[in-house]
């Protein structure tokens, strides 16, 4: 970067900077913004420079972590016991549900075998926490405290307890940056759970609204329908809940409806997330096209990030 130290030392204090110089810098900044927006060159530079600024995030998040630590110690024994009890009950209920799910999964696999479809996916999760720093709200990104050393890779899907949050955009040694599904640049392939219809959910910039611009007028969609990942695009494994349809407007005068959906994940207030690990991807390729099963293993071969 050109630093014109000459101005600092030689220009007298009263000197006004020239308009030419102003224009040059503004043009340069504009050019950078354009390149970054198009995803050319800048993301690579950013990824490189990011490992340098990672310690800054640690310093910035330290006060909040400290406050949080103190407040954890300060909680009464009784409230901890009560919380523990509630969580054990929740765990038991969910374990019961899981047992049924395991049986269903087995049955599903047998049916798939009968159809000679591809093998079902085996999904594992890794826990991660958000780094408590405040990034530009218009960047629609969050930092998590796991990075390359924990096996995080670019394009990895990130979910929370309720639904899909986003995908890993860049990875440094101990941290990773996650692009949220609310980013206007982001699109996630989804499926309406009730009907199986496939479409795409686009971010709108609001944390409480996704938009589904590609649904034809005659499609069957209602308020309250749950959208799950369809697995197309090979970025997000299939079957994870994404959003709930919150508004259906057929009165558009065009061939497509206006459909909005509310993300199920706590995009703007979450603290803990799960990184999705795929042991065996490709379960979602249509029947009979198991040949590209191998390709789905490699996240780098998926589509380019939006």
């Amino acid at each position: 970067m050109p630093i014109d130290t000459a101005t600092v030392t030689t220009n007298p204090a009263q000197g006004r900077p020239s308009t030419t110089r102003l224009m040059a810098y503004l043009l340069l900044a504009g050019l950078l913004m354009l390149l970054d927006q198009r995803g050319q060159f800048i993301p690579r530079f950013r990824a490189f420079a990011e490992s340098l600024v990672a310690p800054v995030y640690r310093v910035a998040s330290a006060p909040v972590e400290a406050v949080r630590g103190v407040s954890t110690y300060g909680r009464s024994y009784r409230s901890v016991v009560a919380q523990n009890q509630a969580q054990r009950e929740q765990l038991l209920t969910q374990a019961g549900q899981m047992q049924r799910l395991a049986a269903l999964e087995e049955e599903n696999q047998r049916l798939r075998d009968l159809l000679q479809a591809t093998a079902g996916r085996d999904v594992a999760f890794r826990f991660a926490e958000l780094v408590q720093v405040s990034l530009d709200p218009y960047a629609h990104q969050v930092l998590i405290d796991r990075g390359a050393v924990d096996g995080v890779f670019e394009g990895q899907a990130v979910i929370d307890g309720q639904g899909v949050m986003g995908q890993v955009e860049s990875v440094t040694g101990g941290q990773a940056r996650v692009r949220l599904i609310s980013d206007p640049e982001h699109a996630i392939p989804v499926q309406i759970l009730r009907t199986g219809q496939r479409t795409v959910a686009m971010g709108t910039g609001e944390s409480q609204r996704l938009s589904l611009p590609n649904l034809p007028l005659q499609s069957d969609v209602r308020e309250g329908d749950v959208l799950v990942t369809s697995g197309l695009g090979e970025r997000f494994p299939s079957g994870f809940p994404v959003a709930e349809v919150s508004r259906v407007d057929r009165d558009t005068g065009e061939a497509f409806m206006n459909v909005d959906a509310r993300p199920l994940a706590a995009l703007d207030r979450g603290r803990e997330v799960l990184l999705v690990l795929l042991a065996d991807a490709g379960a979602d390729t249509p029947v009979g096209s198991g040949a590209d099963d191998e390709a789905a293993h490699d996240p780098a071969q998926g589509e380019t990030p939006p």
């Binding site: 101005t7 950078l32 970054d36």
Partner: peptide
């Protein structure tokens, strides 16, 4: 007495863009 040059402002802006993950060049501008 020695005020900030436009170049310094630009570089400070780029660092801020990097830290807050803003569009590169936005704070520089």
């Amino acid at each position: 007495p020695e005020p900030v040059s436009l170049g310094t402002a630009f570089v400070v802006g780029l660092v801020l863009d990097l830290l807050t993950v803003s569009l590169m060049g936005l704070h520089a501008f």
